[in-house]
Simulated scan of single mutants.
Amino acid sequence: MSDDIEFRRELVRGSVVSARLEGGAVSDQWRADSKDYINGVIDSLTFLNRTRARYGLPKVMAL
């Protein structure tokens, strides 16, 4: 497994833990997007914008 995949996997795990600690949860759609991100199919900006689009928020042009 590549270091990049493992790094992205750990970032996603941290996001899930953070959501749970705040009393929230992550959606099935978010989980599907997170798999694309972990596997390098999408970059972090696309991942962020997919999430924002689900909540009717404007796109972010750069991180």
Results as ranks from 00 to 15, higher is better:
residue 35 K to A: 10
residue 38 I to Q: 02
residue 45 L to K: 10
residue 27 S to M: 02
residue 60 V to I: 14
residue 41 V to C: 03
residue 36 D to T: 00
residue 43 D to W: 04
residue 43 D to E: 03
residue 40 G to M: 02
residue 56 G to T: 08
residue 26 V to W: 04
residue 19 A to Y: 03
residue 58 P to W: 10
residue 54 R to Y: 09
residue 4 D to T: 10
residue 60 V to P: 07
residue 5 I to C: 08
residue 15 S to V: 04
residue 26 V to N: 05
residue 51 T to K: 07
residue 58 P to E: 14
residue 11 L to P: 00
residue 2 S to T: 13
residue 38 I to C: 06
residue 21 L to W: 08
residue 57 L to R: 15
residue 21 L to M: 14
residue 35 K to I: 04
residue 1 M to K: 14
residue 42 I to N: 04
residue 32 A to N: 07
residue 34 S to N: 02
residue 48 L to A: 14
residue 48 L to K: 13
residue 14 G to K: 05
residue 46 T to I: 00
residue 35 K to D: 02
residue 10 E to P: 05
residue 44 S to T: 00
residue 23 G to S: 09
residue 22 E to I: 09
residue 51 T to I: 13
residue 35 K to G: 05
residue 55 Y to D: 15
residue 26 V to E: 04
residue 40 G to L: 08
residue 22 E to M: 14
residue 62 A to H: 13
residue 18 S to M: 13
residue 7 F to A: 11
residue 46 T to C: 07
residue 20 R to Y: 01
residue 58 P to T: 12
residue 25 A to P: 00
residue 39 N to I: 00
residue 41 V to A: 11
residue 38 I to A: 00
residue 28 D to I: 10
residue 4 D to Q: 07
residue 26 V to K: 03
residue 56 G to P: 07
residue 11 L to S: 08
residue 20 R to D: 07
residue 52 R to Q: 09
residue 5 I to S: 11
residue 28 D to V: 09
residue 27 S to T: 14
residue 52 R to E: 08
residue 39 N to V: 03
residue 33 D to M: 08
residue 39 N to S: 05
residue 38 I to H: 01
residue 24 G to V: 01
residue 46 T to M: 08
residue 46 T to G: 00
residue 15 S to T: 05
residue 44 S to A: 13
residue 51 T to G: 12
residue 21 L to G: 13
residue 24 G to P: 02
residue 4 D to W: 04
residue 11 L to F: 06
residue 43 D to V: 01
residue 19 A to H: 00
residue 29 Q to W: 05
residue 49 N to M: 12
residue 33 D to I: 05
residue 27 S to W: 01
residue 44 S to E: 08
residue 53 A to T: 05
residue 57 L to N: 12
residue 9 R to W: 04
residue 16 V to E: 07
residue 20 R to N: 06
residue 52 R to N: 11
residue 59 K to E: 14
residue 10 E to G: 06
residue 54 R to F: 03
residue 37 Y to P: 00
residue 56 G to C: 04
residue 60 V to T: 13
residue 5 I to F: 08
residue 54 R to M: 15
residue 25 A to R: 11
residue 49 N to C: 07
residue 39 N to Y: 09
residue 63 L to M: 12
residue 25 A to K: 11
residue 14 G to R: 15
residue 16 V to Y: 03
residue 2 S to F: 02
residue 60 V to G: 04
residue 5 I to N: 07
residue 55 Y to T: 08
residue 12 V to D: 00
